[in-house]
């Protein structure tokens, strides 16, 4: 099948790529654009490892066709950190040891970002519901939830996305 040239904005940068109809956005990100931060788990929308933000909404990139993103804005886990500077969410995941094998982590980070973008002060219950589409087989979730609460608190204290690690926190 012929490939189509697609233009989209990915992590703030204009990107062009060639894509077949049968390629998912997940395949495009990983195999065509080399953005391998987005993970493949189930390919059925159940695990959330492939989560990205498409036009401001959290979606499973395994359930989006690459061709659908023509003209769209996509944010992946690679877009979180500014260079080597981690954002509060990433810092909090490290601090709380909210990851073990790490395969679920990019999906959790992106899903948590989507939550905090719309709700800067979520309750624990809100966090658990917002992350229900992300599965983790290692951590038991509590540390992830705590990390998101910490990150939200850090961000409310006015630490912007470019804040340096650990600032304003007790060790």
């Amino acid at each position: 099948m012929a490939k189509t040239r697609i233009e989209a904005t990915i992590n703030g940068e204009p990107v062009e790529f060639l894509c077949e109809p049968r390629q998912s956005l997940l395949e495009v990100l990983r195999d065509v654009l080399n953005l391998t931060g987005t993970k493949e788990g189930c390919l059925t929308g159940d695990c959330g490892a492939c989560s990205v933000i498409l036009n401001g909404r959290l979606v499973c990139s395994c359930l989006v066709l690459g061709l659908e993103v023509a003209g769209a804005t996509v944010e992946t886990v690679e877009g979180l950190a500014a260079g080597t500077e981690l954002v509060p969410l990433q810092q909090a995941f490290l601090q709380q040891a909210a990851l073990q094998c790490g395969i679920c982590t990019p999906g959790f980070l992106v899903a948590a970002k989507a939550l905090l973008d719309s709700n800067p002060n979520p309750s624990e219950t809100e966090i658990r519901y917002a992350l229900a589409g992300n599965l983790c087989r290692c951590t038991g979730y509590d540390k992830i939830v705590r990390a998101v609460m910490d990150a939200a608190a850090l961000m409310r204290q006015g630490q912007g996305r470019a804040s340096s690690p650990m600032q304003g926190r007790e060790a």
């Binding site: 929308g45 959330g48 989560s51 909404r57 959290l58 979606v59 499973c60 359930l63 989006v64 899903a111 989507a114 939550l115 917002a130 229900a132 589409g133 992300n134």
Partner: peptide, 9 residues
């Protein structure tokens, strides 16, 4: 229906 990821689509 589903999760946030599913309901957004």
């Amino acid at each position: 229906i589903g999760s946030v990821q599913i309901r957004d689509r």
